[in-house]
């Protein structure tokens, strides 16, 4: 009874709440890191060093007037933010934060579930998130959101192809689709896949940036060309949902990249006697450290790089990333056949 119902429910509650808190603090982190990069201070007024800024933001967004444009499609306009938020949250179901540990005499796996199509689940749920963006743009019945949403969806579909193709080579290495299985494969093969599949790592990282609409691929929000992007007409909590979904997706991408390429909860040099001391740091700590490093990298990139133009973005996706992914896939297959 406890193992089947109570523990999973508690885990779901913890992960959901932790994610939402993490997402709001991601906003603060981003503002702070970018401010430091730009020799500013960032939020300083609410709480010491602006630490309560997310709370203030949440309160502000909740009590703001919720405007629906008169000519908007009411149902779709209301559903769009929810559609973009939900996939971002349910992906966490398969992300392994750590191995199975024993707590109070019960074996507790540090992940909500481990399904044998875990990685495909992540990809497919992420692909549903596109609807939030498309529908938001369409339902607003306004030209800039529509243009932005068309751009966004074209971008997401294109980069999804590249990322999924690249992931196949990781699946080939691990021989499994399960997220836990992939981490265990890295444990058994004594290597983080970032070293075995460097090309795939870079491709997934670039694709991940593009899929989360982050700089330098933040075209759907290019304020110089499209005013505010697909959420121009949104206000209040609905706008906040889009905002949170973007950050939740960022955390998803960094968690997935951590799991696939940096050995998830494994310390460096997994399963080798040399650095056994590294195992004294708890597994989930490793996972969060690595994910945090990626989040920091994303923010850093945003503070550094200019933005691509739409056609250049598409060219990069279709003419560089996808061919590279295919070549990488073929080479991985050949190596696997020849060596094993």
């Amino acid at each position: 009874m406890i193992d089947r119902f109570v523990i999973p429910l508690v885990k779901i509650a913890i992960v959901l709440n932790a994610t939402l808190v993490a997402v709001t603090y991601m906003v603060l982190l981003e503002r702070k890191v970018i401010a430091w990069a730009q020799s500013r201070l960032g939020p300083m007024r609410v709480g010491p060093y602006g630490i309560l800024q997310p709370v203030a933001d949440a309160v502000k967004l909740m009590i703001k007037e919720d405007i629906t444009p008169v000519r908007a499609d009411k149902w779709v306009f209301t559903a769009a933010p929810i559609i973009s938020m939900v996939p971002a949250l349910i992906v966490y179901a398969v992300i392994p934060f750590g191995p199975t540990v024993t707590m109070f005499g019960h074996p507790v796996p540090l992940y909500i579930t481990d399904i044998n199509v875990g990685l495909l689940y992540v990809v497919s749920v992420a692909s549903v998130g596109v609807y939030g963006i498309i529908l938001a743009g369409w339902a607003s019945n306004s030209k800039y959101p529509l243009l932005a949403s068309l751009r966004a969806s074209a971008q997401l579909i294109s980069y999804e192809v590249a990322v999924t193709l690249t992931l196949v080579s990781v699946i080939m290495m691990a021989g499994t689709l399960s997220m836990v299985g992939i981490v265990n494969a890295q444990y058994n093969q004594h290597i983080w896949y970032v070293f075995a599949q460097p090309v795939a790592f870079v491709l997934v990282l670039i694709g991940g940036l593009a899929e989360t609409n982050r700089a330098p691929f933040d075209l759907p929000e290019a304020e110089q060309e499209l005013t505010g992007g697909f959420h121009t007409e949104y206000s209040g909590m609905r706008f906040a949902l889009f905002f949170l979904a973007e950050y939740a997706n960022m955390i998803v991408v960094s968690s997935v990249v951590t799991t696939l390429f940096l050995g998830g909860w494994l310390p460096p040099f997994p399963n080798t006697a040399v650095f056994h001391v590294l195992y004294y740091i708890p597994s989930w700590m490793w996972f969060f450290l690595k994910s945090f490093a990626f989040l920091y990298l994303f923010i850093w990139i945003r503070a550094t790089l200019p933005r691509y133009r739409y056609d250049q973005l598409m060219r990069l996706g279709w003419k560089v990333l996808i061919p590279l992914a295919i070549v990488n896939l073929v080479i991985t297959g050949l190596v696997k056949v020849v060596l094993l």
Partner: peptide, 16 residues
């Protein structure tokens, strides 16, 4: 100019 092309940090550096 850099801001228009999406690089926002140069803007703050230059204003500094």
């Amino acid at each position: 100019h850099a801001m228009d092309i999406g690089a926002m940090t140069v803007f703050l550096y230059a204003f500094r």
